[in-house]
Write a protein that binds this DNA or RNA. Structure first.
Length: 702
DNA sequence: GTTCACACCCACACACCAC
DNA sequence: GGTGGTGTGTGGGTGTGAA
């Protein structure tokens, strides 16, 4: 066990010792570190081994100069960090070729020849596309860069790379192979998977590190606005001849990024099924398998979430990294929990039958008991029981008594033992404890403990009829087809594997990122721009400003309807649109307040599903309805309260002639694009929203 | 023979509903 | 309101076939 636990930034002790024996294998080489994570560690490795660290990124291809990153976004010679760690580990300057990363945007491909085996790298870097030395294509990347989440960008990049650089897959495979060898060398343990057994393995320190995914640091992104889904669509044209496609490094990073942002769902099937919507070459099954078998070893950290699974941010508004994994959605019952449940239920039965406290032996019968208490007592206690003749609790056996056991019991028990819900405790009692036998399990547990053995929880007690259809947890292609839009436009370039973003996932990575940016991240974008003045945000800012100005002007006209004047439930609120929870609200105002509260929360791009679920769970809005509304709003959450206010007020769904709410007619007019139609649309929605809507059309989201 | 993508399985935790 | 029935999907796998 190392002393440098939980420290990504420092070379581990055993590694440092090894480094001391080196004599500068990186001598003469200069590295610029583009990734933040583990930067200090790699810097220390380079410096200790005779290399130099560049504080600024090279502007052009130079001998001896390399960018160290996980992804080549600079269109300059970029080397995977594994080159450093593997070279250091083997005390040899390795062949850099397999570690050179292809540019992600279709820029020039570099070939690196290796010279004498015992000398510096012969850095004869050439452009495979004809030897052009210019790096103007990098500007194209930046030109297309907006405030997108890196995760969605990564998918586009994956597609772009596989399209433009089919030959690059070989290099990636080599790099991946090296990574696997490293995992094998160091046992492949993830300390993040088990914080109690941490050791500072080299794997921990040198595993593939991704770029920073905080929204405020999206300058490592590389997808053009509105292009991610299209890039995903066309990526299938690069499928290998067989029906299985390898996972690209970018796909791997995308998967890891989404997992990091949904740590509580890391073991679910649905998360990976959702990911598969954005990774069209792979099914949810295969992506989950990929994560479980390979990628989980590289997780390294996740983003901190609160008790509701929502991402937390620090004072700078950035996500908080942690190597402590949060609990999953379900917890297995332990033997201790089973035993405590059995004992507590036995105590409850004892109390009921004898009306005596099993711990103190005192009678629970009082002269001033309420009539209802007396009545209840008569229902549960043994009619043949003679007070004072009750057995001691240890002598008492539950035998075949199964109840009654009040819901209140499980409610209280769940509150006292929050490791499982009230329903889960009750189900454990019904399905396991009753089948096993309360007395039997208590006896088994105590016997095992008395013999210094570890008792096991109850298992194999469920015996339910096999359900028809595919087994649960099977997210294969057949299921994926279910989500394909029958009305989706088929681009001529798309193959038979054409895949569209399903309506249920309306707020895809890109779109919700866009909306989130409009709504909350303007200031961050501005600060980011000041940090990276070469990254243009004019378009997004103009658009955001336009929409924001429109919204402000519209507020007086469309948002000032007094909800107290709208009777609740409103006329158009039918059960096909709303769930029973909706009808529990007392007033329209109360409902709208809840909607306001939800849309003002912070939802990350990868939590679109959670947003829709929250609207369902807390407002009683059916998922299909909320997604259809969000479609009409082009995903702009700010307009959501207005939608309900106007729909309820005018009994129209969707409400007509309301800015920001797109009707079918509006969409038709936008498609036709005649001057008159466009004038009307500009008058209604403004140019900003029209631009945004066009993206929805371009991406088949309408 | 090995690796990897993908399909498939199933016990069970948690939930909801009807009687 | 206690109870049984059952829906859903998590959690943790294994099986299969292509390369």
């Amino acid at each position: 066990m190392s002393e440098s636990q939980n420290d990504f930034e420092t070379a581990p002790d055993h590694f440092s010792e090894e480094l001391k024996s080196h004599h500068g294998i990186f001598h003469g080489l200069k590295f610029y570190f583009a990734d933040d994570v583990n930067k200090d560690f790699y810097k220390s490795v380079v410096v200790k081994l005779g290399g130099a660290v560049l504080e600024e990124a090279p502007k052009d291809v130079k001998p001896d100069h390399y960018i160290v990153s996980h992804v080549n976004t600079f269109d300059l010679p970029t080397v995977d960090p594994l080159f450093l760690s593997n070279s250091a580990e083997q005390n040899t300057l390795l062949n850099i070729g397999p570690f050179i990363l292809p540019p992600v945007n279709g820029g020039p491909q570099y070939e690196v020849d290796v010279g004498e085996s015992d000398s510096r790298i012969d850095r004869r870097i050439t452009h495979a596309n004809g030897g052009h030395d210019d790096v103007d294509s990098a500007a194209d990347v930046r030109q297309s860069l907006a405030h997108h989440d890196v995760a969605s960008a990564a998918v586009a990049a994956a597609a772009a790379v596989s399209l433009t650089h089919p030959e690059s897959s070989h290099a990636r495979q080599e790099v991946k192979q090296i990574g696997r060898q490293k995992n094998a060398t160091y046992g492949g343990h993830q300390k993040i998977e088990d914080p109690s057994q941490r050791d500072t393995t080299l794997e921990q320190e040198t595993s593939l590190i991704q770029h920073d995914n905080n929204p405020g640091n999206s300058n490592s992104g590389f997808a053009a606005v509105g292009e991610a889904p299209k890039a995903v669509l066309t990526s299938s044209s690069n499928l290998p001849p067989h029906n299985k496609s390898s996972f690209t490094e970018e796909e791997d990073e995308f998967i890891l990024d989404v997992v990091r942002k949904n740590p509580t769902r890391r073991t679910t099937h649905t998360l990976f099924d959702e990911i598969s919507h954005y990774v069209p070459n792979h099914t949810g099954n295969s992506i989950r398998h990929r994560y479980r078998v390979y990628l989980s070893k590289r997780l390294n950290y996740v983003y901190k979430v609160d008790e509701n699974g929502k991402l937390m941010r620090d004072e700078k508004g950035e996500f908080i990294k942690t190597d402590i994994l949060p609990q999953g959605l379900k917890r297995k019952f332990t033997a201790d929990e089973d035993y405590q449940l059995a004992v507590n239920i036995k105590k409850q039965f004892y109390k009921d039958i004898y009306q005596v406290d099993p711990d103190t032996g005192e009678s629970l019968i009082r002269d001033d008991d309420e009539p209802s208490t007396v009545a209840k007592r008569k229902m549960v206690m043994d009619p043949t029981f003679i007070p004072g003749k009750e057995p001691g609790f240890d002598e008492y056996s539950v035998c075949d008594r199964r109840g009654p056991l009040s819901r209140e019991f499980f409610k209280t028990y769940g509150e006292k033992h929050p490791s499982h819900t009230e329903n889960a405790w009750r189900d454990r009692f019904r399905k396991f404890l009753l089948n096993y036998g309360i007395d039997e399990y208590i006896s088994y547990y105590e016997t095992e403990r008395a013999n210094n053995r570890i008792p096991e929880p109850m298992k194999n007690m469920t015996n339910r009829v096999k359900r028809p259809g595919p087994a649960p947890g099977n997210y294969n292609n057949a299921k994926k087809v279910k989500f394909m839009s029958p009305t989706a436009h088929q681009p001529s370039s798309a193959s038979a594997n054409h895949y569209t973003i399903p309506q249920d996932d309306l707020l895809d990575e890109e779109t919700l990122s866009f909306i989130t940016g409009l709504k909350r991240d303007l200031s961050r974008m501005e600060s980011q721009q000041s940090q990276s003045p070469d990254v243009p945000f004019e378009y997004t800012q103009e658009l955001a400003e336009s929409i924001r100005n429109n919204f402000t002007m519209e507020e007086t006209q469309f948002d000032n309807i007094n909800p107290d004047e709208i009777p609740f439930p409103p006329q158009i609120a039918t059960t096909d649109l709303f769930m029973p929870e909706f009808f529990h609200f007392a007033t329209t105002r109360e409902f709208l307040n809840k909607v306001h509260e939800i849309v003002n929360r912070t939802y990350h791009t990868s939590q679109a599903e959670k947003l829709v679920e929250d609207l369902r769970d807390e407002c009683g809005i059916r998922k299909a309805f909320s997604t259809s509304i969000l479609t009409a709003l082009s995903g702009d959450l700010m307009v959501l309260p207005r939608y309900f206010l106007c729909a309820f007020r005018y009994s129209a769904n969707p409400p007509m002639n309301v800015p920001g709410i797109w009707t079918k007619e509006d969409d038709e007019m936008l498609k036709n694009g005649s001057d008159d139609d466009m004038k009307l649309l500009i008058k209604k929605h403004g140019t900003g929203r029209i631009d945004m809507r066009k993206r929805f059309h371009q991406n088949d989201l309408v």
